[in-house]
Structures are given as structure tokens and as C-alpha cells.
């Protein structure tokens, strides 16, 4: 602090408390809504204080779902989301770290072309090429499968660049020493590069896990079989029927379940999360 101004300090606390309240407000109401019986939503205004039906609502959603709203039991959906988030995060890290290794530690013809081919994926977000990508996946018979949910999303220019930056900062002497000791490329990769990039991998994993968990359009399009629904994509299917039958308590219970895992990851691993966020944007 440059100087002591009690009024400004007071205002700063006020602004932050207000900010925290505004940020938490929708989630608070969602949480409250998930503790009431469905009758609380038929008229009047949504409740502001907790009700008594919390356990029942969550048990209903996890165990049975709402069949009229096209929502299967949520345990399955949460499992699918977990599989998708883990596969995308680990897949992206695996193929990016080997790509970066190839680009940094080898000289081969067309190396620049390979680099640019990866770079270009940065400019082709899935939303932009959605129709032809859907067609490719359909032609390959990958609709309604975990492969279809994850593989098309795991190419990553950002992760490749990040590992390239990390490898470029590793001193050449390490490689020279490893070679004198008789280590080949794969051994050097496993025993030196992987341990040295451990925190970068962890930080990236946090960001990519959230990215994978929060996927929406892609799972919505390629899953028509409820065995492969993910929770984030399913919320929308439930909310669509909410105007006819206001199961707001159950929909909000699902919303809370859908955001809980990634939010817990951010809170539990805040330092890695901030590191990952700032690194991936470099």
C-alpha cells in the first residue's frame, strides 16, 4: 500500500464483499432451490432460504433421474463426464508432450510443416467447423462412443507450445550428460524430461480437466444414447421441459452436481490452477 487511506480501504473491502456476493448469488439460489419440494416453484417467487428436501432431491436425481425430462440417473452421467474429462486431459497431455519432444529435440525434414499443422488447430475451434466434423465422426462410426466423445477434442496446439517452452529452458548440458551416460532418446524423455516438467503437467491437467468436463456442444451432438450422456450436456435437456413441468428443484440439484467436481478441483488446487491458466496463455 502506498499510503494509508482508511476510506479507500473500507471501499475496497466493500467492493470485494459485494463482488463475492454477486459471484456467489446464482449458485446460492441454485443450491437453495435444490433443497425444496417441487411445489415451491408452482407460484410466487423462488425461495431464498433452505428447505428440507435436499437429501430426497439429490437421491432422486442420482438414483432415478427424471424420465419424463429425458434425464437418466445422474451417477451414470457423472461417470461419463469423469471419463471424458480425464481422457481429454490425459490424452492432450500425452500427445502434446511427445509432439513437443519431437519438435525440440530432433531435426528432420518437414519439421516446420509439422509445427504449423499443429499451430493451425488453434485457429479452428470446434464450433466453427462443427457440421463437417460431425460428418467425419459419423462416417467413422464413432457416434455414441467414448472414442467419439474424446478423440476429436484432444489435439492441442496450446499444450504443445507450453511443453515446447518448457523443454527450451532445459539446459543442453543435461542432454549431453545423459548421452555420455549412454541414454537414448526415450530414456532421456522418461528419466529427465518427464520429471522436470512434472509441475507443468499438473498445472495443465487442472485446466484441461475443467475444459473436458465443461464440454457442451460436442457431447450434445454426438450422443443420442443416454448411456453416453454427460452431465453438462444433459442439464439443457432437462431445463427444456422446465416450462411445462417446473422440476426446478431437481434441475438445480443437477446443476449443482455438474459444477461441483471442477469447482472443487479449482479450490483444492488453486495454485496449480492459476499457474496453468497463466502459462497456457503465453
Amino acid at each position: 500500500m502506498v499510503e494509508n487511506r482508511p476510506l479507500l480501504t473500507f471501499l475496497a473491502h466493500g467492493a470485494l464483499i459485494l463482488g463475492v456476493i454477486v459471484v456467489a448469488f446464482p449458485v446460492y439460489l441454485a443450491l437453495i432451490a435444490s433443497t425444496h419440494p417441487v411445489s415451491a416453484f408452482s407460484s410466487g417467487v423462488i425461495p431464498l432460504l433452505p428447505g428440507r428436501e435436499m437429501a430426497a432431491n439429490y437421491a432422486t436425481m442420482l438414483g432415478q433421474g427424471i424420465s419424463t425430462a429425458g434425464a437418466p440417473p445422474l451417477w451414470g452421467l457423472l461417470g461419463n463426464s469423469l471419463v471424458m474429462a480425464l481422457a481429454i486431459a490425459l490424452g492432450k497431455i500425452a500427445i502434446s508432450i511427445t509432439s513437443a519432444f519431437a519438435i525440440v529435440y530432433f531435426r528432420f525434414p518437414l519439421r516446420n510443416l509439422a509445427f504449423w499443422a499443429i499451430f493451425i488447430t488453434l485457429m479452428l475451434p470446434v464450433e466453427v467447423r462443427i457440421v463437417p466434423t460431425f460428418k467425419v465422426v459419423a462416417d467413422l462410426g464413432m457416434l455414441n462412443s467414448y472414442a467419439g466423445l474424446t478423440i476429436p477434442l484432444i489435439a492441442s496446439a496450446t499444450a504443445t507450445f507450453l511443453f515446447r517452452q518448457v523443454f527450451l529452458t532445459i539446459p543442453d548440458e543435461l542432454l549431453e550428460a545423459a548421452r555420455i551416460d549412454g541414454a537414448g532418446p526415450l530414456r532421456f524423455f522418461r528419466d529427465i524430461l518427464l520429471p522436470l516438467s512434472r509441475t507443468n503437467i499438473a498445472a495443465l491437467f487442472v485446466i484441461l480437466f475443467i475444459y473436458g468436463w465443461n464440454q457442451y456442444l460436442w457431447p450434445l451432438l454426438i450422443t443420442t444414447d443416454e448411456r453416453f450422456y454427460t452431465i453438462v450436456a444433459a442439464i439443457k435437456r432437462m431445463a427444456e421441459t422446465a416450462d411445462a413441468e417446473p422440476y426446478w428443484n431437481l434441475i438445480m440439484a443437477s446443476a449443482v452436481l455438474a459444477m461441483l467436481p471442477p469447482v472443487l478441483v479449482v479450490i483444492a488446487m488453486q495454485r496449480l490452477f492459476v499457474k496453468g491458466l497463466i502459462e497456457t496463455e503465453k
Partner: peptide
């Protein structure tokens, strides 16, 4: 910082 982790679709529904 935690709202970063909330899916855009879930934020929309809330």
C-alpha cells in the same frame, strides 16, 4: 476465481 470452473451451459441455466 471459482466461477471459472462452472460450465458456460450451467451458468446459462442458473
Amino acid at each position: 476465481v471459482w466461477p471459472y470452473a462452472v460450465a458456460p451451459a450451467v451458468a446459462g441455466v442458473m
